[in-house]
Design a protein around this nucleic acid. Structure first.
Lengths: 159, 159
DNA sequence: GTAATTCCTCAACCTAACTTGAGGTCAAGG
DNA sequence: CCTTGACCTCAAGTTAGGTTGAGGAATTAC
């Protein structure tokens, strides 16, 4: 309640500290390093040292994942952050905005699908190719795994 | 252009026919059988024979997958269909309705998330535990893979 | 009746996103 | 100094949702 212990603000976090601050597991953080989501430096002894701004960086990763984005999507977005300095709030706003746009798109796609489902229930066309839900253009692209459809030109698959 | 070849409407489809009718690959249909999404009978020679109603059944599977449902979700839903007879439109309406409800939920969750993302951009709380986006209860459960968060009670993971 | 399709099973492989374990090192406290 | 806990690397395992290939049998087409 009294003296805050001097926070040895070396500004460098160990992987365990970062794990505690983000709620991620240590192994997940190491994995994210292999995926280029973070790029810690190494201590003399070879241990990872993270910047405090990596807390925010990984927090963003978490949020984006909850929103349904893949690690590769996120890597690309983070690649837009300034290389040297720690990102400012402006920087974060910038990349968050792009994600929000993508989210809007997904929401409207799902809404459209929901309405098409209503249509299909109404018209009983569940098995008809006419159903909007069969329109490949309407599909969520890899928003979760699914079958590799072979509809349309078979040359897409085999040839 | 003239005589439609007698459609040998034995009412039993081979796996290849079913694949053509649904747009699925043969291997996917076999896979779905192992997952109990379809249960073909066998010919004298041991080949799979499907009912015509399986076209609709697999079409439903496709639609549901596009909506983001897992095979297990779908299996459970299909388990609600009548066992003996081919499903009627009423039956399909019934199970579609349940999916629509789940869709509604997901849409509103995503919408809420989008709004929270706006909040986070505004207040700069991206790294704060207070952010609504960190609320585990708010999370899409396995709607796409993601990290197994270790927040909260560690006994959830290890014990 | 035989050749060309199509089908069969089973095992192995694939991607994403991680976890787990083995075997060994680094860092901090007493 | 030396022990304990946190770290390290690398390989292999996990789940979902399938695909691919080998080796062989069943159908269909002429």
């Amino acid at each position: 309640m009294a003296d805050i212990p001097p926070p040895r603000h070396t500004d460098a976090l160990s992987i365990g500290d970062l794990a505690k601050r983000t709620g991620l597991s240590v192994s997940a953080i190491r994995f994210y390093e292999t995926k280029k989501l973070v790029s810690p430096i190494r201590s003399a002894g070879g241990q990872r040292r993270f910047l405090r701004s990596d807390i925010r960086r990984l927090s963003f990763v978490l949020i984006a994942q909850q929103l349904g984005f893949s690690i590769e999507d996120i890597r690309k977005a983070l690649a837009g952050l300034p290389p040297g300095r720690a990102p400012t709030q402006k920087d974060w706003e910038h990349i968050s905005r792009a994600f929000r746009a993508e989210l809007e798109t997904r929401i409207s796609t799902m809404t459209r699908m929901r309405d098409n489902l209503d249509n299909c229930i109404g018209c009983g066309c569940l098995s008809l190719k006419k159903c909007q839900l069969y329109n490949p253009a309407d599909r969520l692209k890899r928003f979760g795994p699914g079958p590799r459809l072979i509809v349309g030109d078979p040359s897409e698959r085999k040839a």
